[in-house]
Design a protein around this nucleic acid. Structure first.
Lengths: 225, 225
DNA sequence: GTTGCTAACGAACGATAGTTCGTATGAGCC
DNA sequence: GGCTCATACGAACTATCGTTCGTTAGCAAC
């Protein structure tokens, strides 16, 4: 169980379910309106309880927020480690992009929470988020820097490329729903995600292959819809 | 003067200056903490006045927020029109990317405000923002759709590409400062912006040119600008 | 049955939110 | 000099905020 949750000697199953419902509601609210824009009474109402009952499970609002981040980004850290263990040029393969898209799209609130923290200048200085970002970017940079020069990018450009890749993937998950219908309809539906997945794979080959042969790569016939 | 500002028969110069100070302070606060995370007393304090005095210039908090968006995105609309008047393939030229970067970096709060609205699902349904996005994406899509297939992108992929491009540019301005020192140090400094500008130009040629050799100065179609 | 803990609640606290009101000051115009 | 209006303020309103407290119902262990 999360560290940010109040420890109990014996926890009821009903209490366990309440915690999960509260975390679900809080994650959705925090992802949409940010920390200060979310009220505990709203979270409690969404979870089917009253605000004071929240204090049976979380010390305060900050602890609840930390628990949300912990649940959201903790599992991703393991996935990230698996990514990085693939080898020094893992970032250059399209699988890196599509897998990351799958991880974020599986729980879009992750990307939204991350963006909220970025916009506020990481005001809460969450430890988990910091290590997550350090892994994602720090390890990524180190891996990319050791990669041989099959790609057209200089060592100076790699950080910018890493940031751009992140913004493309996370931006699609977090921002596209706001432009619903204008660019993509129902961006998080399985069909739309498959489309974005193919798009990312194509993007990756364009960005990482120095001498590409693009004539054959694009399968124009999209039979499934 | 903005529509969201209370109309006066004769406005004092001191009042005019106050309005600008309030808009500056409000823009910064809204960009960082969002609408509901920002208090009028904070804005007033930053502007050197007290909260009730705000109501001499703005009807309420929503109107102040609208005025901030108006001042932030109004001028961009004109710039956008100039972009689109460059021709049907304006989006494919690196100048489109670098100019857009310059516009956003000139006032980074624009990108941050936009992201806040996107994250909250455009909760305020600001008219100016809606028309701005419609112009940016709608007109862009129409222009790109009419462009001949010199680029490797199918008509179905163009919306995804447009969204990705937007996320790369706006993301750099709004998100990079949060990762200060990890990927880019002082991302909005002139030197860093020149670096990002060069990076975007390179990215554009990789994304839009099907063949490695770039077409030179043969501006097809309308060369007026 | 008693005890002890969990988990919920209503009531209420102080703080702060957006907002209103009455008033004072001062600049601009006749 | 008077008049008017723009602008700022303190005080105070209601609503809501995060939070505390006392209490109660229910379950588990002895």
């Amino acid at each position: 169980m999360s560290q940010a949750v109040i420890e109990r000697e014996r926890r009821t199953e009903a209490g366990e379910q309440t915690i999960q419902r509260v975390l679900d509601a809080a994650e959705e609210r925090f992802a949409g309106e940010g920390f200060s824009g979310t009220s505990l009474r709203d979270i409690a109402r969404d979870a089917g309880i009253r605000a004071p009952s929240l204090y049976n499970h979380f010390e305060n609002k900050e602890a609840l927020y930390a628990a949300v981040l912990e649940r959201a980004f903790g599992p991703v850290l393991e996935i990230l480690e698996r990514f990085l263990s693939r080898g020094p040029d893992a970032y250059e393969t399209p699988a890196m992009a599509t897998d990351m898209l799958a991880v974020l799209a599986d729980r879009p609130n992750r990307a939204r929470l991350l963006l909220h923290e970025a916009l506020s200048g990481n005001r809460h200085r969450n430890e988990l988020l910091a290590t997550w970002i350090e892994r994602l970017f720090g390890s990524g940079l180190r891996a990319m820097g050791n990669s041989p020069g099959r790609h057209p990018w200089s060592k100076e450009e790699l950080p910018l490329l890493l940031l751009a890749m992140n913004n493309v993937i996370a931006g699609y998950v977090a921002v596209a729903p706001a432009f619903e219908g204008m660019l993509v309809r129902d961006p998080l539906s399985p069909a739309a995600l498959r489309r974005q997945e193919r798009f990312l794979a194509k993007l990756w080959t364009l960005l990482w292959d120095e001498a590409p042969e693009r004539r054959d790569s694009s399968e124009r016939g999209r039979g499934t819809k």
